[in-house]
Amino acid sequence: VYGIPRRHRQAKKNWVLEITDLVGQEDRLTADLPGGWKQRVAFGAAVMHEPKVVFLDEPTSGVDPLARRQFWRWINQFAREGMAILVTTHYLEEAEQCNRLGFMVAGELVAQGTPRQVKEEQQKKLVEWECEPLQQAADLLKEKLERWRVSIFGSRLHTILEPDTQISQVENWLTSAGIKVQNHREIEFSLEDVFISVVEQARQRGLNIPA
Results as ranks from 00 to 15, higher is better:
Ser155Cys: 07
Gln39Pro: 00
Trp37Met: 11
Asp139Asn: 14
Leu33Cys: 02
Ile152Tyr: 08
Thr165Lys: 13
Gln201Arg: 13
Ala137Tyr: 11
Phe71Ala: 08
Gln135Gly: 07
Met104Thr: 04
Gln70Asp: 11
Glu120Asn: 12
Ala84Val: 14
Arg80Val: 06
Asn14Arg: 15
Ala202Ile: 02
Arg156Phe: 14
Gly3Gln: 00
Arg73Gln: 14
Leu66Ala: 15
Val150Ser: 03
Asp27Ser: 12
Leu126Val: 06
Ala11His: 01
Gln97Asn: 10
Glu81Gln: 15
Gln204Ile: 10
Ser190Val: 04
Phe71Asp: 02
Gln169Ile: 12
Thr30His: 06
Arg68Tyr: 14
Asp64Tyr: 07
Gln25Phe: 13
Ile179Arg: 07
Val63Arg: 04
Ile187Thr: 14
Asp164Ile: 12
Leu207Glu: 00
Thr114Cys: 03
Lys52Gln: 15
Val53Pro: 06
Gly206Thr: 05
Asn76Met: 10
Glu192Asn: 09
Gln112Gly: 12
Glu58Thr: 08
His49Cys: 02
Leu207Gly: 01
Glu192Arg: 08
Val41Trp: 00
Glu58Ala: 07
Glu143Cys: 05
Arg9Glu: 02
Ser168Cys: 07
His184Gly: 05
Glu188Tyr: 12
Gln39Cys: 01
Pro133Gln: 09
Trp37Gln: 08
Val110Ala: 01
Ile19Arg: 09
Trp173Val: 09
Val1Lys: 13
Asp139Gln: 13
Ser190Leu: 06
Trp148Asn: 05
Val53Phe: 14
Glu121Arg: 08
Ile209Phe: 00
Pro163Trp: 15
Gln25Ser: 13
Leu101Glu: 01
Val110Asp: 00
Arg73Cys: 09
Arg40Cys: 00
Leu145His: 07
Val170Leu: 11
Arg73Tyr: 11
Phe189Lys: 10
Val16Lys: 01
Gln204Ala: 15
Leu207His: 01
Arg68Cys: 11
Thr175Cys: 04
Gly102Trp: 02
Glu128Tyr: 05
Arg7Pro: 01
Ala106Ser: 13
Trp129Ser: 08
Ile196Val: 13
Asn208Leu: 06
Asp27Cys: 05
Ala138Cys: 08
Arg73Glu: 14
Leu207Phe: 01
Ile85Glu: 06
Asp21Ile: 05
Gly206Met: 03
Glu121Val: 03
Leu140Gly: 10
Ala11Trp: 00
Ala138Trp: 03
Gly178Tyr: 03
Ile196His: 07
Arg40Lys: 09
Ala202Arg: 03
Arg156Tyr: 12
Val1Glu: 12
Glu162Phe: 13
Arg149Trp: 08
Asp193Gly: 07
Ala211Glu: 15
Ala11Val: 01
Gln136Gly: 03
Gly82Phe: 11
Glu81Leu: 14
Val105Ile: 14
His158Glu: 13
